[in-house]
């Protein structure tokens, strides 16, 4: 069906925004507002456009990450093996965590990733809880 073709990007300043946001996040661990402002200025893009893209993707963090990073897997296998209980126990203990759709370690479900290392998510086996 003939739908109107998307008009070409009116300013033609490349598609490098996402890549540059990644670079900023790699350097700072998150996207500080000053850096977003600098990026917008450097690319001659409106602030709200840069923020719109940065806030849309879950992988971009707009607040500084904590000292430790905890990611709970919400994949099917982990769900079946009790990732919801794991999340509840973390929440109960006031542990800040993120979630991922699957970390590819279904054989050990339920799992979480603690500071980059995959760990069993069985609440009984978590020494730090």
């Amino acid at each position: 069906m003939a739908t109107k073709p998307e008009p070409p990007a009116p300013h033609g300043l490349g598609d490098s925004l996402v890549e540059r946001l990644h670079a900023v996040q790699q350097q700072h661990g998150y996207l500080p507002p000053e850096e977003l402002q600098r990026l917008a200025r450097a690319m001659a893009r409106p602030l709200s456009e840069v923020m719109g893209v940065a806030s849309f993707y879950h992988l971009f963090r707009l607040v500084p990450p904590g000292l430790h990073r905890c990611v709970v897997c919400r994949g099917t296998a982990c769900f079946v093996r009790g990732s919801e209980r794991l999340e509840a126990s973390l929440r109960q203990r006031g542990v800040a965590f993120e979630t991922a759709s699957c970390v590819g370690a279904c054989g050990q479900a339920p799992v979480l990733v603690l500071d980059g290392a995959v760990r069993s998510g069985d609440p009984g086996e978590l020494p730090w809880l």
Binding site: P46, L47, S48, M51, S55
Partner: peptide, 21 residues
């Protein structure tokens, strides 16, 4: 031509944002 507004965030959290939100 000022582009003050854009759409930020996503899903049910989606909102109109001004500048850097």
């Amino acid at each position: 031509g000022a582009h003050v507004w854009d759409v930020g965030y996503r899903g049910s959290a989606c909102s109109i944002i001004a500048g850097l939100d």
